[in-house]
Amino acid sequence: MKIVYHHRTASRDGQSTHIEEMIRGLRANGHVVVESAPAVDAVASTSGGSAGWVGILKTWLPKPAYELAEVAYSFVAYRRMARAIRELKPDGIYERYNLFLLAGVWAKKRFRLPLILEVNAPMAVERAQYGGLSMPGLAHRLERYVWRQADRILPVTQVLADYMVSIGVDPSRIQVIPNGINPAHFEKLPTAQQAKAELGLEGRLVVGFTGFVREWDRLDRIMKWIATQPAAHNVHLLVIGDGPARAEIEACAADLGVSDRLSFTGAVPRERVPALSMAFDIALQTALVPYASPLCLFEYLALGKAIVAPDQPNHHEILAHGENAYLYRPDDELGIEKALDALTADPRMREDVSAKAREVITNKGLTWSQHARRVAKLFEDLGVQTRPVAASQS
């Protein structure tokens, strides 16, 4: 089948990874996918911020003006999508949801095409809580409107699906599809010992974190915990990534006299992350919003690492405490420290949890190619006829 994949993402981060891997998965399954999206900034950040002119607008425009600009952008996005639809004559539209983005619904109605909407967060809730909204009423109304107009809606967790139902989305149109991994990225990896040697961490017990480090990740807590560990444990924190909290974490380590037990790789190409992460003995999934499906969690599972994560419902959808992860109570002031104590002191527990982590990917079918097949089946259920497509079109 032929699909227009529509989104508003112009950055190089976890969002772009999801987009690229889903497109790759659909194409690998024989479908033609045309991307309708803004151009990716050549220096688009992996910093978690907004790339290029979007970041400039956010900085200089008052919030009400910026939000109205987002609504107005829907007209630009619609014209781009309409051109793609006229050229490709697709069987359906797949859209990555974003707040104030109405173009997908307009195209669905104008061209009478099925619309499948991928939703990674309740953006009206998230931005009101973290980024600030000047027009929360409008944001919530438009979010409900778009969600209710989609033919199928794909939240990344059941927690998010339950929220959708609570605001009036028909549960029969909802199917949970979490994040996943590309198995090709986890082939021919070094051993843990080889990865440690490359980083100069031979003989150390490595606690690892992957991603963009922010204040709420509280890696300063990890450094304080490391400072209490006996020298015999030789515990080291390895952060694969960078972020605004880096200077604070490094200052904390220096104050505690444990700077030699902390390493940052800085930003690295995404294809290098799995090989570097093989150095981990324990992988940290820090506190996060209750509806999220974090990419790094699936990568930790694919690597077969002993995962420490908060005990919360979205993690229960993937993890089982004591079986394939060690879950700690986020309301316990020493929760993550107790979890690290347990895994550090018991190598056998680490090995058992690690051994079962990789099985989760296989048992739950958590690869992008498998997710792409689920999406194609949903289009078929909506009446799209699967037909051969010329290889040149793909």
Rank of each mutant, 00 (worst) to 15 (best):
E20P: 01
E202P: 11
F298L: 10
R204V: 06
A77G: 12
W147L: 02
D217I: 06
D352F: 04
G49Y: 01
V375W: 01
A150Y: 08
A44N: 05
Q129T: 07
A232T: 14
V32C: 12
G304Y: 03
V119M: 11
W60H: 11
T265G: 04
F298K: 10
V353P: 02
A10R: 05
L117F: 02
E21P: 07
P274C: 12
S263W: 03
G322Y: 03
I249L: 02
A197H: 14
I226V: 15
R173T: 12
L61S: 11
R221H: 11
R221G: 09
D13N: 14
G266Y: 10
E323I: 04
A65V: 14
R80W: 09
V235A: 14
G137S: 08
R8C: 05
A107N: 06
A195L: 11
E70F: 03
R272E: 15
V176Y: 09
L237G: 08
L154N: 10
V239L: 10
A192F: 00
E20S: 09
Y130E: 12
L382S: 11
I167D: 06
E143I: 07
Y78N: 03
R112K: 15
Q229M: 12
L343Q: 12
A69V: 15
I181Q: 05
A254F: 01
I318V: 15
F298V: 07
N120V: 01
P64L: 07
A72C: 13
R373M: 02
L276E: 08
Q370W: 04
Y326D: 04
S50K: 12
L26T: 09
E299V: 06
G14N: 10
A306S: 13
S394D: 05
H140D: 09
V308F: 00
V258M: 08
A232K: 15
G257H: 13
V146L: 01
R374D: 01
R141P: 00
L334Q: 14
S11Q: 10
R27W: 00
D13I: 02
T59W: 03
P171D: 10
Q385L: 11
E351G: 02
K364R: 15
A161E: 11
R24G: 06
A339D: 07
P230G: 04
E87V: 07
I249S: 03
L57F: 08
H31C: 07
R270L: 01
K108A: 05
A325P: 13
G49S: 12
V165E: 14
L238Q: 05
D242L: 04
V119L: 05
Q312S: 14
K305Q: 04
A283Y: 06
D346L: 07
Q15L: 03
P313H: 06
G132Y: 08
R110F: 00
T46V: 13
S50G: 10
K305T: 05
T157D: 10
A39C: 01
T265A: 05
V156R: 03
L26A: 06
G200C: 09
S74M: 08
R144N: 09
G335W: 02
L138W: 08
D220A: 05
N179I: 02
S45G: 14
A121Y: 00
L138A: 11
D332K: 12
Q175E: 15
R348T: 13
L205K: 14
F264S: 07
A325E: 14
N182W: 01
S36R: 03
A275P: 00
V40D: 06
F212T: 13
L205W: 06
L378W: 05
W368N: 03
A65W: 07
I56F: 08
P155A: 09
R144W: 00
S166V: 10
A150P: 04
I222G: 08
